[in-house]
């Protein structure tokens, strides 16, 4: 990797510490060549109210999703999104965002579908940077566009489709939604009724581990020890397990996918992005309550 990693000790304990940076590290490295900082939020306007100096906006909905079919952008669209932000194939990309980095980890997961090698998360995200009183700006820096290569999206390694989940029944699965959604009491996430489903409950055999258990109050990730206590000791998952994670549309489960893959070193974790909005609406799909 071209840009040095953050040597901070909490990070060093994780399986892949090079996937995280601290606010201190970012403040020190801002403006360096071959480092691009992206902000990825749920709220499409939040970046425009002020962002980390030099950071560019990446919108999960408008930039990463195909606008017609329910799918991610293809290689050409992705190359345009990256190129417009001056990103090259070997650029170090640091992503941060609101809501404990939900949408930042989602963006990282999508970039991983295209095999972008060096992409990292700012531990604590936007909230921590703001809470520490660090500099914010509304100035958008000029970008020299790059010619990012057209890479074919690889949906086999870290993404699961409905049929694959059906075949996965009986193997480890993590439902990261709220307890009410898991039990079937709620047909959608609290406060998000527009993305509901015909049936409530969970995929048979899935364990309930709400995504937020992996985050501290300040939006940072829990330590490796704390994460192992949740996913390995309490839930009995093993880093060699073949695991599928899901939520409602695949964004909260990107957070858990990141935790299992990069912080705990699980070897095979797939995010089922169809998630409950597909499964709970899918005719004949088995449901457990």
């Amino acid at each position: 990797m071209t840009t040095q990693t953050d040597p901070q000790s909490k990070l060093a304990a994780y399986a892949h510490p090079e996937r995280l940076v601290t606010t201190d590290w970012l403040a020190e490295h801002l403006g360096e060549d071959n480092l691009v900082v992206l902000e990825s939020n749920e709220d499409v306007l939040l970046y425009d109210t002020g962002h980390i100096p030099g950071a560019l906006k990446l919108d999960w909905h408008l930039d990463l999703n195909d606008q017609l079919s329910r799918d991610y952008v293809d290689g050409e669209q992705f190359a345009r999104v990256m190129g417009e932000r001056g990103i090259r194939r070997d650029t170090t990309v640091v992503i941060y965002g609101d809501k404990s980095n939900w949408w930042a980890t989602y963006a990282l997961w999508v970039m991983t579908l295209f095999g972008h090698e060096d992409v990292r998360i700012l531990d604590g995200g936007r909230a921590k940077w703001v809470a520490e009183g660090r500099e914010m700006t509304t100035d958008v820096r000029p970008v020299t566009p790059t010619d990012y290569p057209v890479i074919e999206r690889d949906d086999t390694a870290i993404r699961a489709f409905r049929q694959e989940v059906l075949e996965h029944l009986g193997k480890p699965m993590v439902d990261v939604r709220s307890p009410g959604e898991f039990s079937g009491e709620l047909l959608s996430m609290p406060d998000y009724p527009q993305e509901g489903a015909m049936r409530g409950g969970h995929i048979p055999g899935a364990r309930s581990v709400p995504w937020g258990r992996a985050a501290n109050e300040d939006g940072t990730f829990r330590t490796r020890e704390e994460l192992e206590a949740i996913y390995q000791q309490e839930q009995g998952l093993d880093p060699s397990d073949d695991v599928v994670a899901y939520c409602r549309i695949g964004e909260r489960s990107s957070h858990t996918w990141f935790v299992l893959t990069h912080l705990l070193g699980f070897e095979r974790v797939r995010n089922y992005d169809g998630s409950w909005t597909e499964w709970g609406n899918s005719v004949g799909a088995p449901v457990e309550r």
């Binding site: 709220d43 499409v44 306007l45 939040l46 425009d48 109210t49 609101d98």
Partner: peptide
Amino acid sequence: PPEAPTTRG
């Protein structure tokens, strides 16, 4: 809330 500018808009 101010951290939800789209909704405020």
